[in-house]
Amino acid sequence: MDSLVVLVLCLSCLLLLSLWRQSSGRGKLPPGPTPLPVIGNILQIGIKDISKSLTNLSKVYGPVFTLYFGLKPIVVLHGYEAVKEALIDLGEEFSGRGIFPLAERANRGFGIVFSNGKKWKEIRRFSLMTLRNFGMGKRSIEDRVQEEARCLVEELRKTKASPCDPTFILGCAPCNVICSIIFHKRFDYKDQQFLNLMEKLNENIKILSSPWIQICNNFSPIIDYFPGTHNKLLKNVAFMKSYILEKVKEHQESMDMNNPQDFIDCFLMKMEKEKHNQPSEFTIESLENTAVDLFGAGTETTSTTLRYALLLLLKHPEVTAKVQEEIERVIGRNRSPCMQDRSHMPYTDAVVHEVQRYIDLLPTSLPHAVTCDIKFRNYLIPKGTTILISLTSVLHDNKEFPNPEMFDPHHFLDEGGNFKKSKYFMPFSAGKRICVGEALAGMELFLFLTSILQNFNLKSLVDPKNLDTTPVVNGFASVPPFYQLCFIPV
């Protein structure tokens, strides 16, 4: 009986604490739906499609509103004006990374994606500088992407125009580009180590996009005490870190300090320079996690976009025909596509942009946080508050993009057929937390897609009208449904 009384008292205290925290903070924060004790607004949000729920709530509470995930307040920004004001106009104040408990377990605050403060700034600055020195957006990395595009075309030829699921092959190409940047090595598509790495990356994007992960991140005790797919994700990350550590040891034994070959060499050189400046942010643990982040951000996002792009091109054969006509006119058949071609191919450029806009790969991006107490639109948001960005509300804005739910390359073309930029184009987020590999991803999408369409016609196994382009999961990332196609050599 005594234990029951204690339990009831504990629960009562928890409920009172929950109510007090919510009521004391709500006077400062933007308005929002009334949260339930302990669980907050979790029942009012469709976990399978958070973005749709945010759109519905914005119609009631406006472009800036507050939700509670458990006891934790989260300020939501919906629509271009609110997102721009926060991420661009007040970029420094909104540059923090929001709480992501599962990532905390995986990387302990290291790396480039989930770190904060001085650690994040130094690692991000170093990573950007190193990638630029190796030619991100310049010639040397373009050579690597072109080489991988040629290998991709050869792998597709091996399908002999038979029906195939493109998931694996389209994942190999961007993964190999990242391998060449980090390890100075590309792998054969049949290499077992490479296959294991690909498998872990593919599993992780599916797990991260599941409703279960949303629950884990908002009720963090689940991570330590409950079984579930989150444990598989943590094991996959541990596998990748151990693999990278092996490569780091190989580099330490063979590195030429006067001739760095890749990202690992550059990081080890930085560690050597910083060894007298303790404590340094440049450690082996930081290198492991930064490399894992580059793999995660640079492989599955690009391969998922490529997979979605081919599905949309199957669905819209008239678009595919126009792209192939432009390829034939500008590039021809006797040389590989290059980035200089893009400025002469406005329709193809528009298609690449429209694919990214339409699929809305990361509907709410990753959570941000404010780095200080900030007054925002007459609300006071306390330091450390998590900020949720609705990228969907920007990419699918119906004023900027008429009929935003329709796939239409003319969203990025003017009346004369010239490519038209849009400030609403934010597939990689915006501001200080914009994806480090934005330029690389854009290069890969253009070169891989043009190389495929230069060499193959795409054949659907069903009537294009019957192809479903609805994402199968739409949590962290929008993942396309399973499909097969035939690559018919031109």
Rank of each mutant, 00 (worst) to 15 (best):
Ser429Glu: 05
Leu440Tyr: 02
Gln44Gly: 11
Asp143Tyr: 08
Ile452Gly: 01
Asn258Ser: 11
Gln252Glu: 11
Val6Thr: 13
Asp256Tyr: 07
Glu203Pro: 00
Ile359Thr: 12
Ile374Phe: 11
Asn217Pro: 12
Lys383Leu: 04
Lys119Met: 10
Thr66His: 02
Ser393His: 03
Met269Ile: 15
Lys420Tyr: 08
Lys399Phe: 08
Gln340Phe: 09
Pro382Leu: 01
Ala430Gln: 11
Arg132Lys: 13
Ala149Cys: 09
Ile215Thr: 07
Leu287His: 00
Ile205Leu: 08
Lys185Ile: 04
Leu366Tyr: 03
Asp188Val: 03
Ser254His: 12
Asp262Ala: 05
Gly40His: 03
Leu77Ser: 01
His276Leu: 10
Lys432Gln: 08
Leu152Ser: 01
Lys48Gly: 11
Val177Lys: 00
Pro33Arg: 02
Gln214His: 14
Pro260Tyr: 05
Val38Asn: 02
Leu485Asp: 00
Leu445Phe: 10
Cys164Arg: 02
Glu325Pro: 03
Tyr347Leu: 05
Phe110Asn: 12
Gly298Leu: 00
Leu366His: 02
Glu288Tyr: 11
Val323Ser: 07
Asp408Ile: 03
Ile123Ala: 15
Arg329Met: 12
Arg144Asn: 06
Gln356Glu: 07
Asn403Gln: 11
Ile47Asn: 14
Asp224Pro: 11
Glu93Thr: 08
Phe446Lys: 01
Ser115Gly: 10
Asp293Arg: 00
His411Met: 02
Ala291Ser: 06
Gln356Gly: 07
Met129Cys: 12
Thr470Leu: 07
Asn196Thr: 15
His78Val: 10
Val436Glu: 08
Asn133Cys: 09
Leu314Met: 10
Cys172His: 03
Ile123Gln: 15
Pro337Lys: 00
Glu326Gly: 01
Phe401His: 05
Asn41Pro: 04
Arg333Ser: 10
Gln484Pro: 01
Ala238Ser: 13
Ile374Asn: 03
Pro63Cys: 08
Ile182Trp: 05
Gln214Ile: 11
Pro346Gly: 06
Lys190Leu: 06
Leu380Gln: 09
Thr301Pro: 08
His368Leu: 06
Glu104Asp: 14
Thr450Leu: 05
Ile488Phe: 05
Leu197Ser: 01
Pro227Gly: 09
Phe94Arg: 01
Pro163Tyr: 06
Ser303Ala: 11
Phe412Asp: 00
Asp373Val: 02
Arg124Ala: 04
Ser127Asp: 06
Ala161Glu: 11
Cys435Gly: 00
Ile213Ala: 15
Arg125Pro: 06
Pro63Arg: 05
Ser336Ala: 14
Ser365Ile: 12
Leu311Val: 04
Cys338Asp: 09
Pro471Asn: 04
Ser303Asn: 04
Ile182Pro: 00
Thr55Asp: 14
Leu87Ser: 06
Val177Ser: 00
Arg26Phe: 10
Val5Ile: 15
Phe425Ser: 10
Val479Gln: 15
Leu19Gln: 15
Ser343Arg: 14
Ser303Glu: 02
Thr304Asp: 05
Gly96Thr: 06
Pro166Met: 00
Thr320Val: 07
Leu54Ala: 08
Val462Arg: 06
Lys420Ser: 07
Pro409His: 01
Ile123Arg: 08
Pro166Thr: 01
Ala297Met: 02
Asp341Leu: 05
Lys235Cys: 05
Glu199Thr: 12
Gly384Thr: 03
Leu366Cys: 05
Lys160Phe: 06
Ile387Val: 14
Pro279Asn: 15
Gly135Cys: 10
Val248Glu: 03
Ile434Lys: 14
Leu17Gly: 11
Gln484Ile: 02
Glu85Arg: 04
Asp360Met: 08
Leu287Pro: 01
Val355Pro: 01
Phe168His: 13
Asn41Leu: 04
Asp397Ala: 10
Glu148Lys: 01
Ile99Arg: 15
Asn218Leu: 15
Arg139Gly: 10
Glu400Met: 09
Leu77Lys: 00
Ile141Tyr: 05
Thr386Val: 09
Ile387Asn: 01
Ser303Cys: 05
His316Met: 05
Cys338Trp: 06
Lys84Tyr: 08
Ile244Leu: 09
Ser58Asn: 11
Thr469Glu: 10
Ala297His: 00
Leu14Asp: 06
Lys52Ile: 09
Phe401Pro: 01
Val436Gln: 07
Arg433Ala: 01
Glu199Ser: 11
Phe126Cys: 07
Leu467Cys: 03
Phe448Arg: 01
Leu208Asp: 14
Leu362Ser: 12
Leu388Asp: 01
Met339Trp: 08
Gly298Arg: 00
Lys421Tyr: 08
Glu246Arg: 11
Val60Met: 11
Asn133Met: 11
Leu36Asn: 05
Lys138Asn: 13
Glu354Val: 01
Gly437Leu: 04
Lys206Thr: 07
Thr348Tyr: 02
Ile327Pro: 00
Lys383Gly: 05
Thr386Ser: 10
Ser286Gln: 15
Lys383Gln: 07
Glu300Gly: 07
Thr371Leu: 08
Leu314Asn: 02
Thr167Pro: 00
Lys270Tyr: 07
Val319Tyr: 10
Lys206Asp: 06
Asn378Arg: 07
Lys121Val: 07
Arg21Pro: 13
Leu152Ile: 05
Val177Arg: 00
Leu449Gln: 02
Ala369Thr: 15
Thr304Glu: 05
Ile112Gln: 08
Leu391Arg: 06
Asp256Pro: 10
Asn107His: 13
Lys190Met: 08
Arg329Gly: 11
Lys235Ala: 11
Lys72Phe: 04
Asn289Arg: 11
Asp191Leu: 01
Arg342Asp: 00
Glu155Ile: 04
His368Gly: 03
Thr469Gln: 05
Ser343Gly: 12
Arg335Gln: 08
Lys383Phe: 04
Phe183Pro: 00
His78Arg: 09
Ile182Arg: 00
Val319Asn: 05
Pro30Ile: 02
Ser140Tyr: 14
Val394His: 04
Ile169Asn: 02
Phe69Ser: 06
Phe219Leu: 14
Leu77Val: 14
Glu285Phe: 04
Ser3Ile: 14
Tyr347Gly: 01
Lys247Ile: 07
Val352Phe: 10
Gly416Met: 13
Phe69Gly: 05
Ser254Met: 12
Cys172Asp: 00
Ile215Leu: 14
Leu9Gln: 14
Tyr358Ser: 04
Thr304Leu: 08
Arg150Met: 09
Ala350Asp: 02
Leu77Thr: 03
Ile123His: 12
Asn277Arg: 11
Tyr483His: 01
Ser24Ile: 15
Arg97Val: 03
Ile50Trp: 14
Ile215Asp: 04
Cys175His: 02
Ile47Gln: 13
Leu453Arg: 01
Asn418Phe: 07
Ser53Ile: 08
Lys241Thr: 03
Phe65Ile: 04
Gly40Ser: 02
Val8Asn: 06
Leu311Met: 05
Leu391Ala: 09
Thr470Glu: 12
Met255Glu: 08
Arg335Glu: 06
Ala161Arg: 06
Leu170Lys: 00
Cys10Gly: 13
Cys338Gly: 09
Val60Asp: 12
Lys423Leu: 07
Arg125Ser: 07
